[in-house]
Simulated assay, not measured.
Amino acid sequence: MSPQITPIADTAQDLELVERLLTPDGARIPHPQLDRFVADVDPAQLRSLLRDMVVLRRIDTEGVALQRQGQLGLWAPCRGQEATQIGTARALDPQDYVFPSYRETGVIYARGAKPGDYVRMWRGEEGAGHDPGALRVAPLQIIIGAQSLHAVGYALGIRHEGSDEVAVTYFGDGATSQGDVNEAMIFAASYQAPVVFVCQNNHWAISEPVALQSQYPLAGRAPGFGIPSLRVDGNDVLACLAAMRWALDHARSGKGPAYIEAVTYRMGPHTTADDPTRYRPAEELDAWRDRDPIARLETYLRGIGELGDEHLAETQAAADAVAKEMRAECLGMVTREPLAVFDRVYAEPHAGLERQRDEYAAYLSTFEGEV
């Protein structure tokens, strides 16, 4: 199931070199390898996936709004990538452990995050955004690609213990140019670690297009390390679910790592500190709006008579309720005093730390009286 190694000339050709089960216009097509991995998926499960994507988009919209209103320091939007995140995350078993980047809002949602978990880190509050132990998701990683090394290290532990877990790491197309990701794949292949690499190719590494980073599909790199790979339509939630089930089955059965390149698109900015209009052509964005992952699944379900306006209204109401609770949690957070950053650094008093605390207190005092 490795990809064709054909040069990528443009977005249109890029889309022709992916595996899919739902076409952009919402038609179900057969696939000789992937069909068996979703043979159990019925309309009720598809409606559940649709609900997940709608809720995720609403969470993302609320995150952007909170940042624009000064309640968050930053937000990394995932609009347009809902199918990749929900499809792959819903394939995971409860015992699997995820090592995300900073954009995997949908993954932590699928793993059971609470409304406050989405904003805590971006607001700069105490602790990680979520409870890593409860969700079995490591803290969101800001350093590009570093989480891939963490995932492989964890997977080596799984292998030595002989447990039934799989480690999963998510990263963007830009991270594939980082040494960490390539070193992680070397170790994973050498030691047959049970880890799945999920590359969300959203076409833009901040302001750099993926075609500038690689003249060939990113999934084509994995076989060079001895890792089987699959290049899937990242806006097709059913194909993403199938691809992840394939990869997890491969890793869990003792065959070593697997790699998925999900070809999707970042509809918004890289983060709320970015202005994509400065580097991204408007016609490209318009073309991808026609491939919206939510509209695709909705069209398919309507076409087979398994989706009505009432269900969509209920789904949107549920999404709005989550966003409302997320906003309330954010506005209700109490920020610690600045000097509290020195609390519980050491078990016993430490002279060096006390000196730093005094120096920081003196620095903060220079702002007294400022509005």
Rank of each mutant, 00 (worst) to 15 (best):
S214Y: 03
A328I: 01
A193F: 12
D40I: 04
I294V: 15
L156V: 14
L364T: 05
T277G: 12
E310G: 06
P228D: 06
S148W: 04
A251M: 06
T169D: 02
G80H: 09
L50N: 08
M244E: 13
L74Y: 12
G106L: 13
G174R: 05
R302C: 01
E104I: 01
R231F: 13
E337Q: 13
L49Q: 04
G179I: 05
G106R: 01
L56S: 10
P349S: 09
H31V: 00
V54A: 05
R327W: 04
E208C: 12
Q85R: 00
R327A: 15
D309R: 14
T366L: 13
R291S: 05
P281V: 06
L230S: 07
E161D: 15
V232W: 07
R111E: 11
V64C: 12
Y346H: 13
A321F: 11
A328C: 02
A262L: 03
V237I: 08
Q81A: 11
L307P: 03
E208T: 13
E283A: 15
P132M: 07
D309P: 13
H250M: 01
A321W: 02
L17K: 10
A361S: 08
R291K: 14
T23V: 05
I206C: 06
E314Q: 15
G80R: 00
I227C: 02
T61C: 07
Q67F: 01
P7K: 02
I158L: 06
